[in-house]
Amino acid sequence: MTQAPFRIGTRGSALATTQTGHVAAELAELAGIEIETVLVKTEGDVTTGPLSQLGGTGVFAAALRQALLSGECDLAVHSLKDLPTTQPEGLVIAATPKRADVRDALCARDGLFLAELPEGATVGTGSPRRAAQLLAFRPDLKIVDIRGNVGTRLGRVKGSPAQADDGGVGRTNQGDLDAVILAAAGLERLGLESHITEYLDPEIMLPAPGQGSLAVEVRAAGSSNAAVDAALEKLDDHDTRLAVTAERALLARLEAGCAAPIGALARVFEDTLVLDSVACRPDGTDTMRRTATTQTLTVDGAIALGVALAELLLREGAAALAGL
């Protein structure tokens, strides 16, 4: 009897299907199996309004996770920065593939850099974290809350042609902004890096915890396919796992979601895991940056590092500063 295809769940946006396609291709090659993609519509795809007001974290993940738990698919691929820090019972993150570019990217009219934008320029972002750090660097900017797929957002920039992915929630007038901020990893995965006018240094803008990383999630009992389980072990990148574990542990201890003005970035340098963090007043008038390190390069060590740095931030007033 012919074995049924292995089913991978994904959102339907161009970025989600592209990311899932990369994971599916690697798993198919490593495990030697046939892969079938299952499209799942999530609350974040169909609900209008600011992301920060859509009921907290997980608006892009809940439906995918339900499809996985119900058996509609055998595995789900997420953008890790969109996942709540509390792992649901019955599911595990089986692999965090090697991380892509962690930075945020400015896509501006006329090839402008952030420092070159005219006074009072309009910059679109749906992220309070990005908005706060932008205003800390350039208090004169006018931040405009935007929604939609990558193509929809790029289309908001003056002089930008319509994009193939211009079909997301929140489409508004074309070309009404001076710039938008997007994750560099997403633009690069879609082959749209030509729109980037400046990669924003983490010294100016720390990324969201987990940014640039994917999470491959399965039921806790495993994928039900031994070859896939073995492939997932190979797909998991140890340094990425440590970095995102530390970042998400910090976020969890702060009891902050992906809509909070909190940035974090962990990196392994030789024998040391370094975690940088920032907590911002939403209007950008004050920021708190702190760093911690550990030489315990295990998942438990990464968790302890994130918790310790969060405790330091809390002692120094980060909760009141960021409105947590």
Rank of each mutant, 00 (worst) to 15 (best):
T2F: 10
Q3R: 10
A4L: 15
A4H: 12
F6A: 13
A14I: 07
T17G: 06
H22F: 14
E29D: 15
G32W: 08
G32C: 04
I33L: 12
I35T: 04
I35N: 01
T48D: 14
L54E: 08
A61G: 04
A61L: 06
Q66F: 05
Q66K: 15
L68I: 08
S70G: 10
G71I: 12
D74P: 03
A76H: 05
V77S: 13
S79P: 13
L80G: 00
D82G: 06
E89I: 10
I93T: 14
K98F: 03
K98A: 14
R99W: 03
A108F: 12
L114K: 00
P118Y: 02
V123H: 07
Q133K: 00
R138Y: 11
D140H: 05
R147V: 11
G148L: 05
R153L: 07
G159Y: 14
G159P: 04
A164T: 09
D166H: 11
R171H: 10
T172Q: 10
D178N: 13
A179I: 13
I181Q: 04
L182P: 02
L182I: 08
A183G: 15
E188A: 13
E188C: 06
R189P: 02
R189F: 08
R189M: 12
S194Q: 13
I196F: 12
Y199F: 15
Y199N: 09
P202Y: 11
L206I: 10
L206M: 10
P207D: 01
A208F: 07
G210T: 02
A226T: 12
L235N: 05
D236P: 00
D236K: 04
D237M: 02
D239Q: 13
T240Q: 06
V244A: 08
R253M: 08
R253V: 03
L254P: 02
L254A: 09
A259P: 03
L265H: 00
A279F: 07
G284R: 11
D286I: 03
V299M: 06
G301T: 03
V307C: 09
L309R: 03
L313I: 02
R315E: 15
A319R: 06
L321V: 03
G323D: 02
